[in-house]
Amino acid sequence: MSRILQPQTASREQKAETPFVRYLLSLLALAIIGLFLILPLVAVLFEAFREGWQAYLTAVTDRYTRHAILLTLFTALICVPLNTLFGIAAAWCIARFQFPGRSLLTTLIDLPFSVSPVIAGLVFILIFGAQGWFGGWFAANGFPVIFALPGIVLATMFVTLPFVARELIPLMQAQGAEQEEAAIMLGAGPWRMFWTITLPRIKWGLLYGVILCNARAMGEFGAVSVVSGHIRGSTNTLPLHVEILYNEYQFSAAFAVATLLAGLAIVTLIAKSIVEWRQQRQWENASS
């Protein structure tokens, strides 16, 4: 929660610095943000529209682009709900119960953050690839995993697994189990308790995790790149499609498609800010 609840107590310390230092530091911060965050965004937009509106629309409404958009949305549609369920279940287990292997589970949830996405992709190739452990069997039974939709979903699931759980574990640990115990003491069943007590108390944290999870699911490149096979109109997600266009020297089209991802990022940021604001307000109400 600390990240969300950063207190605005900096004003006193600021007065201790001379104006020169203050302006220099502010300028430096702005320069870095401009160079690393604003400039690339401007460049994407600039390049996307370099050949005019017509070219932009053509690139964005291209048959393969449309397919990539659908594939990306479909993947997110499967991964985000599953990882949300997993995140709630895992956070509940870790925050509410003591069991052997609890700390191991906590560490394992972080594994996708610490492993390079490319390695994650390769692991799935090793397991489900043509030469892999189970790949032959799956392919022979008409259900290819690698270079097909299941592989993309698996890789995305793996990469986005920690987001919801990571958000909920510290929140639920901080909240404690007393209110849930109180609900049980008043006669509520576990299911009733979850919907009336647990969920309302974690909803903003949960939504925050879901937004981050969704952003990553749609934007994931490395792991998906390894398992997808880049088959245009079949296994090409949006980020992969951008790369293909770029490699084919269709710079303008590549940047045009990239604006879709950038747009998604901006929508995510706005949604995230609203959720943070709501969450903070809830905390302020709670502490007033």
């Binding site: 609900a183 008043l186 108390r201 709670a286």
Partner: peptide
């Protein structure tokens, strides 16, 4: 409970009514 464990997201009325509603 020692720290009362009231349901902070419910009104006082709903807190008291909870045991009857469930």
């Amino acid at each position: 409970f020692q720290h009362y464990a009231l349901f902070n997201h419910m009104s006082v009325f709903e807190n008291v009514a909870y045991g009857l509603r469930v």
